[in-house]
Every structure is written in C-alpha cells, then in structure tokens.
Amino acid sequence: MDRIPILKLGSALLVTIQVDMHDRLATALQEDLTEKIVSARAKGVLIDISALEIVDSFIGRMLDHIAAISRMLDAETVVVGMRPAVAITLVELGLSLSGVKTALNVERGMDLIRRRLIETEAADGAGDE
C-alpha cells in the first residue's frame, strides 16, 4: 500500500501531500506521523498542501486531527502552501481549521516552528531559575 513519505528537517517533520487522498492513505499518514513525532522527538510538523487542488471536509478533518495529536505530543503543526481557490472554497464550506497554524510556504513554516522553539526554551529556562 502507498504511504506518504515523512522527511525529517532539523527538529521538524515535513510531509508533502501530492496525491488525491483517500481514506486508507489518510489513516496511514496519521498513524505514521504520530509514531515519527515520538521517535524523532520532533517539535514541529509541516504539512505542505501546495499540490492539492481541493481540500474537502474529510482532508480538513484529517489536518485538524493531526494538529490536535501533535499538540498533545508537544509538536506544533503548520499547514503550508494552501492555494487561493482552495482557501476560498474552504471558507465557503465553513471550515476554518482554527486549530492549525498556517504559513505561505515551507520556509515561512520552518521560521514559525523555530520561533516557537526559541520562545518555549526561553520560557522553560526562566521557569528553572
């Protein structure tokens, strides 16, 4: 069965979704990501959807789930590269993805994760004293 590859990029994981998702692929991705976050001690998850021509409520729900799970495992999820037509359609559909962070591209997404890492480290450091 096909699986979506997960790349490690510093302290973050990068997933590029390029195919039209069906249920099994989505479930497999959720499972793989959960395990990889723990094993790689990842602090962030970047999901690049710039290749996706549509995001329906099924994919939207998957993104929301991944964000909620990774948050529990102390990793931030950033969805990057959503196309304008997809964004307009999602808003019309009524899906706001309020639980996930967004960025224009992978680079900006990485910045976001790095900034969060610095902030949490600073906060943790302050708490130790």
Binding site: V79, I88, L90, V91, E92, T102, L104
Partner: peptide, 12 residues
C-alpha cells in the same frame, strides 16, 4: 470576513 479567513488559511 471571508477574505480575511481565506488569507489566514493561506498563512497571511
């Protein structure tokens, strides 16, 4: 508001 929400989804 929809425009603002759509821009947010794109990361702006």
């Amino acid at each position: 508001l929809k425009t603002v929400s759509a821009a947010r989804l794109m990361g702006a």
